[in-house]
Amino acid sequence: MRSVVLLLLGVQLAYAGTHSLKYLYTSVTGDPDLPEFTAVGLVDGVQFMYFDSNAKKAVPKREWIRQNVGEDYWERKTQNCIGDHQNIQILRQWFNLSQGVHTVQQMLGCEWDDQTGATEGFESFGYDGEDFLSLDLKEMRYISPVQQGSITVEKLNKDKGQIENNRNYFSTVCIEWLQKYVEYGKSSLQRKVSPQVSLLQKSSSSPVACHVTDFYPSGVTISWMKNGEEHHEDVDLGELLPNEDGTFQKTSTIRVSPEEWKNNKFSCVVQHQGETKTVDKRDSLPIMPIVGVLVAVVLLIAIGVIVFVVYKKKQGFKPVSGSDDGSNSSARPQA
């Protein structure tokens, strides 16, 4: 019998918080199996649009956006994404890429606290999985953590028109569209779905995985307890992954010998939106019977969402300019 402890801390905690609008762009060269360019739009971590350079058309990924915007919106979004693709091609020239497979990943967006009204913008991008450039919003200038980025920084910071465009985008355009999107999708975005928690183990000598899935919103904390005390040794926390239905999944794995697992009381504690669930080793299940289910879930995830996972793992990102649909597209100065 699964041991579950629920601690409800109130409705306000469940709904208060910061909303986010993010655009993730990935350019890949040297790999014929992937589109050269993909664009993903997310509101509160949920994908609502997708574009790639093969299809050359922006498409909705959630019913709430499909119902609230017209065809002109998608035509505009398509042209913006085509422009973003061209921008990245210019950036690639600045990077002076060598032969082989390379990635340029870019991310921009904004956050809005629906309780305090506070807002914040962010923009950065990376090359081959490493941070390359970011926009300092206080100084309104680009900075780079690596020496190789100095030439690109100098070129971007000389474009005063683009800098002013950035200022308008992050302070006004992005926030206005984020608020629209939150209103469009409020029945979905403001819902609360409690997580399903399972302990999975392939064999007695394998690591034990605490698999948390089907929860929304995305904020979740997973921790381990040993004999009633917090345990951090040999624990690995996995990435947050999206499910096809808009919920999320995440896994924390603990490496422990069969003897230690048998002779001690280990528990996985999951906290989500004011609710706490605890499962212990009596709830362990063999992992093999459910592998097919997990693989099926992954296969159902759109390639645009996969780009999001790559971004989270590699921390790479994108440059800027304002548009009237919350994305950011304009031609960069030629190299």
Rank of each mutant, 00 (worst) to 15 (best):
120 E>D: 08
122 F>E: 08
122 F>K: 07
123 E>V: 01
124 S>V: 01
124 S>T: 03
124 S>E: 07
125 F>C: 11
125 F>K: 02
126 G>Y: 00
126 G>I: 01
127 Y>W: 15
128 D>K: 03
130 E>S: 12
130 E>C: 00
132 F>S: 01
132 F>D: 01
133 L>D: 07
133 L>V: 08
134 S>V: 00
134 S>Q: 13
136 D>A: 09
140 M>R: 14
140 M>Y: 12
141 R>G: 13
142 Y>R: 07
142 Y>G: 02
142 Y>I: 11
143 I>C: 06
143 I>M: 03
144 S>D: 14
144 S>G: 15
144 S>Q: 13
147 Q>T: 06
147 Q>G: 13
147 Q>N: 05
147 Q>A: 13
149 G>E: 03
149 G>H: 03
150 S>V: 12
150 S>K: 03
151 I>P: 00
154 E>M: 12
154 E>C: 06
156 L>Y: 03
156 L>A: 11
156 L>R: 04
157 N>Y: 04
160 K>H: 09
160 K>D: 08
163 I>V: 12
163 I>C: 04
163 I>W: 10
164 E>H: 03
164 E>Y: 02
165 N>V: 01
165 N>Y: 06
166 N>A: 06
166 N>G: 04
167 R>I: 08
167 R>P: 04
168 N>Y: 08
169 Y>S: 06
169 Y>K: 10
170 F>Y: 13
170 F>M: 14
171 S>D: 11
171 S>C: 04
172 T>L: 10
172 T>S: 15
172 T>C: 05
172 T>P: 09
174 C>N: 07
174 C>S: 06
174 C>H: 14
174 C>D: 06
175 I>A: 01
176 E>L: 09
176 E>Y: 04
176 E>S: 14
177 W>F: 10
177 W>P: 05
178 L>K: 01
178 L>H: 13
179 Q>P: 05
183 E>P: 02
184 Y>D: 07
185 G>T: 08
185 G>P: 00
186 K>I: 10
187 S>A: 15
188 S>P: 13
188 S>Q: 11
189 L>G: 01
189 L>K: 08
190 Q>L: 06
191 R>N: 06
194 S>W: 05
194 S>R: 14
194 S>V: 11
